[in-house]
Design a protein around this nucleic acid. Sequence first.
DNA 1: CTCCTCTCGAACAACCTGTTCAATAATGAA
DNA 2: TTCATTATTGAACAGGTTGTTCGAGAGGAG
Lengths: 185, 185
Amino acid sequence: MSGNTDRRVRRTRQAIQRALVELILEKGYEPVTVTDLINRADVGRSTFYAHFADKQAVLFANLDEVAFLHPAPSADGPLFGFSLAMFEHVQEQRRLVRALLGRRGGQMVIAHGEQLLQAVIRDELLARGGRAGASLDLVVTCAVGAFMALVRKWVDGEIDATPAELDAAFHTTITPGARALLARA
Amino acid sequence: MSGNTDRRVRRTRQAIQRALVELILEKGYEPVTVTDLINRADVGRSTFYAHFADKQAVLFANLDEVAFLHPAPSADGPLFGFSLAMFEHVQEQRRLVRALLGRRGGQMVIAHGEQLLQAVIRDELLARGGRAGASLDLVVTCAVGAFMALVRKWVDGEIDATPAELDAAFHTTITPGARALLARA
DNA sequence: CTCCTCTCGAACAACCTGTTCAATAATGAA
DNA sequence: TTCATTATTGAACAGGTTGTTCGAGAGGAG
């Protein structure tokens, strides 16, 4: 048994989740209706509501499959060493990430991603001796904003670059400032 | 004649625009319906559609009143000197900016703000001798992302800081990296 | 005062949502 | 294989939203 449920359940849920990704890539998240979803997934209306409360629940179900944002806070290695791995991960799952985090994706997902990333960056700065406080949080916000901006533009095709190039740009821009903050502590 | 139109037109348009701001602050942008708008503005349904194509048109009409994003590219003065003035401007129009750019606001507006800011920052880096190219654009993207992240969190009340503190954080984080880029040119 | 424009409000078709229900089909276990 | 369990179906429904239309009436400009 893969999963622990009825095969029909697995099939249905997967069909719906797949359909959402396809439709987001075609029209963006907001315009997608539940009716679209059940047509594309070829599933009965009542079946849909037996599995998901609404459109957004499907979105979040997909979200779990792209939760590549949980590196341990590291005090050694290069500062913000996590970023290259993340860019590479995004590239592998480009299709899914594009649907979820791109301009056509849902706002909630971006907010969720920002929160995860915020924790990662904050923990890393603290692990390297940053002093908790308002000014550290402001720097964290800047770093999160910069990273997410790169990812969004990248998956939307507004930027053509390799993961290594993105990583380099992120470090060029953010690392000196972050070091300055740490040195001040 | 203030404006150049019928007084009724002015009154109607203003009532609708005001209503949208109020409603966004109460429920966020997406949940606001045209029916909500015409009730709050106390305006007939057909009247609404005589002035605006849809909800989003009202949003953009409001947007013009907060277009504080047009500083001339400056090659002298401190790098990214525009930012303090912008943070102060945001504080003055906090109510409106909060409705438009905050978490409850529309995605389109944020995208629009990012585009304006991107041009500003890009021009400034070019005016200071930055070499146009992919790696400059990547840095610009980071700077825009960082700035917008600060503004969003600020107007949403997730950050409690003065414009000067925000400005300082922005410069601490971004300026060293930007200088490094310019030095490389 | 008069003409012209704007507003009103109701009614409309079209669409979307989320729920219900009885009939049918697939599944997993004995 | 058989059989009880569970999932799916498809249609129908009430409630809400959108954008349009139209005649009647109110308001402003000159």
